[in-house]
Design a protein around this nucleic acid. Structure first.
Lengths: 167, 167
DNA sequence: CCAGTATATATAGCCTAGCTATACAAATCC
DNA sequence: GGATTTGTATAGCTAGGCTATATATACTGG
């Protein structure tokens, strides 16, 4: 229980506050981008489907539990998502030779195609908003992504490791 | 119906492809950030709640329909979200003097507090991932946000205007 | 000034994606 | 070989998304 009044930071303060607002701005912008991406793209699949497929494409086949950890969802949630993906034939279950309880979940050719197709639709929809960017501006954005990407990835995989160690 | 084969872009090509991958990388990263933000933060409220509150805080009271357009959700979805917010007393309904069918929806003091509190939790949770950034790196990220923010905002408000004109 | 149309919100009913708690089956460990 | 641990599935709930439709108010033309 919180007994002391929360310090409500004002936009004016020092370097620590600057990082605070940088982070909250990143999150707010990300939320709006994620929402816009879902809305401007056809198809009934939600963000969870694409996030899961992207993980599988980038990291290769893995167990359902690992996939859940690397997607930052609970295991039963991943069971449900994978069930949907299996039905669409966008992933395949591969029997795990070492453990009869487990499967390896791998993206299928069809899954890769659908993911690529979705990304193309996405890029086409967002292009008009961004085609006025100069080369320098694109470079700034690219560098920002390269700064954020590994740090976010680390948060995801740290969680996966923690699960393996403590869980 | 799509009859021609989709061009599957490869990572190697020219400037247009570069923008394509910039956009898809932004969206993928945003999805992961949004998910991480939700997961690392306590409370049952989903992203939609915070997105809606943020819109109200930044743009002031407005009608439910406007709010739906500016949040990129369908009107019945916003009816549901607002119902939840009214119950928590994070927004207030103000009778519209000019139109008995409509309300003005405004964020309450409690709503501002909760939003601020959530952002503080968020910043605290993400801080350890980013406290090693140099001043230059922070500056790069800030400039990237300032490039993306207005373009995303425009997509949102364009939709709101379109709704008002054609709808 | 009233009939008909247009508009703002609400309701109904469905889906995906999230969660916790728990069941079940296989592996592992005395 | 019985007890415990571990991997996945099931049950059951919630929020947040949608379309179609109902309802109430506003507007407009004769």
């Amino acid at each position: 229980m919180l007994t002391e009044p929360i310090t409500l930071p004002s936009r004016a303060s020092g370097a620590e506050a600057e990082l605070h607002f940088l982070l909250t701005d990143i999150v707010q912008l990300s939320g709006r981008i994620t929402r816009l991406a879902h809305r401007t793209t056809p198809g009934a699949e939600g963000p969870a489907t694409w996030r899961t497929l992207a993980v599988l494409q980038q990291s290769g086949p893995m167990r359902l539990g690992e996939l859940a950890a690397m997607s930052q969802v609970a295991q039963p949630t991943m069971t449900k998502i994978v069930a949907g993906l299996v039905e669409r034939e966008w992933v395949k279950r591969i029997a795990d030779a070492d453990d009869a309880r487990a499967w390896q979940i791998g993206i299928s050719a069809k899954g890769i195609l659908k993911l690529t197709e979705w990304r193309s639709n996405l890029a086409a929809a967002l292009l008009p908003l961004f085609d006025d960017l100069t080369d320098d501006e694109r470079d700034t954005i690219r560098r920002a992504i390269d700064l954020l990407q590994p740090r976010i990835d680390r948060a995801y995989s740290d969680d996966a490791i923690e699960r393996k160690t403590n869980g």
